Lab assay of single mutants.
Amino acid sequence: MDVFMKGLSKAKEGVVAAAEKTKQGVAEAAGKTKEGVLYVGSKTKEGVVHGVATVAEKTKEQVTNVGGAVVTGVTAVAQKTVEGAGSIAAATGFVKKDQLGKNEEGAPQEGILEDMPVDPDNEAYEMPSEEGYQDYEPEA
C-alpha cells in the first residue's frame, strides 16, 4: 500500500510541476504579447503594419512553449490582441483601416495563427491545408 501511495504522490508532483510550467509559459506569452502591443503603439504610420505582424510573430513563438489545451486559448487571445492593436492603430490615425491585415508588401496577414497546427491532446499534428499553395516548377 505504501508503494501505491508513494507512486500516487510522485504522479501528483509531476502534474503540479507540469501545471506550473504551463502557467509560466502562458505568463511569458502574455508578456511578449504586451511587449508587441507597446511596440505597435510606438510606431509611426509606416511601421504600424509591420508592428502588428511582430506582435503576432512574438506571440506565436511563445505559444510553442505552452502545451496542451492552453495553446488553443493563448492563440485565440493573441489573435484578438493583434486585431485590437490594429483597431487602436486605425482609431489613433497611425494607419488607414484599409491597410490593416496586410503586410508591407500588401499581402493579407489573416491566418497567421489560424494555420498553425495545434492539437490540445498532444496526440497528432496535421499540416495546414494546401489550398493556398501553388506547385513550383523550376525553369529549365
Rank of each mutant, 00 (worst) to 15 (best):
N65W: 15
A53T: 01
T81V: 14
E35L: 08
V37Y: 02
K21P: 00
S129K: 07
A29I: 11
G25H: 10
G93S: 04
K34G: 03
E126W: 07
Y133R: 12
V55A: 03
T54I: 12
G41A: 00
V15P: 00
K32R: 08
E35I: 15
T72D: 09
K21R: 06
V40Y: 15
Q134H: 04
K80E: 03
V55R: 02
I112V: 15
K21E: 01
G86M: 02
V40N: 01
K21T: 05
P128T: 05
A56C: 13
A11W: 14
T64L: 13
V70D: 03
V15Q: 01
V74H: 04
I88P: 02
V48N: 00
L113Y: 08
V37K: 01
K96M: 12
E104S: 04
K23S: 05
Q62H: 07
P117W: 04
K45D: 00
D135W: 06
G101P: 00
I88E: 03
T72A: 12
D119Q: 14
S9Y: 03
G73V: 10
K96V: 13
K32C: 01
D2V: 03
G36M: 11
A89T: 06
A78I: 13
K97P: 09
V49Y: 04
A56G: 03
V49M: 11
M1H: 00
E104M: 04
G101A: 11
K43H: 04
S129F: 09
P138F: 13
E28Y: 07
Y39D: 14
K34E: 10
S42R: 05
N65Y: 06
E114D: 15
D98V: 11
V49A: 12
K102S: 11
V16S: 04
P128V: 03
G106M: 11
A91W: 10
A11K: 00
V49H: 00
A56M: 14
A89Y: 13
K80N: 14
E139C: 14
A17E: 06
T64E: 02
V52G: 01
A76H: 11
V49P: 03
V95C: 10
K43Y: 15
P128S: 01
G101K: 10
K6V: 03
D135T: 11
V71N: 02
V3Q: 08
L100Y: 09
D119G: 13
E137Y: 02
I88S: 03
K80W: 14
E114W: 14
A78K: 11
V40Q: 00
E114C: 06
T59A: 12
T33N: 02
T72G: 10
D121T: 06
Y133V: 14
K97Y: 11
S87M: 12
V71H: 03
V55G: 01
V71M: 02
E104F: 09
A69R: 13
E20I: 15
M127W: 12
L100C: 04
P117L: 07
P128M: 03
A69L: 02
K97G: 10
K43E: 01
V74N: 01
Y136I: 02
A17F: 08
T92W: 15
G67K: 12
M127K: 10
T22Y: 11
Q99T: 13
T59S: 09
V40P: 00
Y39C: 04
A91V: 05
V66D: 01
A124V: 13
V95P: 10
G51V: 07
Y136S: 13
G47Y: 14
A140T: 07
